[in-house]
């Protein structure tokens, strides 16, 4: 007589990922997703803005898949007027860095629109000028978001795998979003409306 584990395994051994899924996660497809994904970003800028997007990628795949510098088009909205700008990507060690240079009046804000890939993914890590990447620290069973000199206890808010809140850095109020687990997480920021 079969055990319950054997019954269960037999049932789910018959389930296989469709072959088309393999094609969708090939390195070439991953590169396509990475190139076309941008996260919304709103920052206050000075007279001449250089917006830097810092993207963490793996060593081996990065070298294999990217090669030289490339340029992608992104939409930029200034005072409600939409225009197109070039984002230049290049490799710096373990990172891909994307740069947009755009001249705007002092004190204005720039919003770089979401650009999603064909599957709706819009997830890329980035840094904004003056805002370093946040990290999580666990102390005495509490989980803290640490950004520069600021530390926020997100333990309760993070129990479902996502925490959001507000944090002030250098006089600017940011909204942070943390997703994942204490060991494996993503942190993103937007300037608070």
């Amino acid at each position: 007589m079969k055990t319950n584990k054997e019954i269960y395994k037999n049932a789910f051994d018959e389930v296989h990922a469709p072959a088309e899924l393999f094609g969708k996660v090939e390195v070439s497809q991953m590169e396509h997703v990475k190139r076309r994904s941008f996260k919304g970003l709103r920052i206050a800028v000075s007279a001449f803005a250089a917006l830097l997007f810092l993207v963490v990628v793996s060593n081996g795949i990065c070298y294999a898949a990217t090669g030289d510098t490339w340029i992608t088009k992104v939409k930029v909205i200034i005072d409600g007027k939409e225009t197109e700008a070039d984002m230049t990507w290049h490799q710096e060690g373990d990172y891909m860095v994307g740069t947009i240079e755009y001249e705007v009046p002092e004190g204005r804000e720039i919003f770089v629109c979401d650009e999603e890939d064909v599957d709706g993914n819009s997830e890329i890590e980035y840094n904004t000028p003056g805002l370093t990447e946040g990290r999580l620290e666990v102390e005495n069973d509490r989980i803290y978001l640490v950004v520069e000199d600021s530390k926020v206890d997100i333990t309760e808010d993070f129990t479902d795998g996502e925490a959001t809140g507000s944090i002030e850095l250098a006089g600017v109020q940011y909204v942070y979003t943390v997703t994942g687990t204490a060991e494996d997480y993503d942190v993103s920021f937007d300037v608070e409306e």
Partner: peptide, 17 residues
């Protein structure tokens, strides 16, 4: 499930633990 699989392997690709 398709989306989850793609996102999972995208995380693998991106983070390369």
């Amino acid at each position: 499930a398709y989306d989850v699989v793609q996102n999972t392997f995208f995380n693998l690709y991106r983070k390369a633990p």
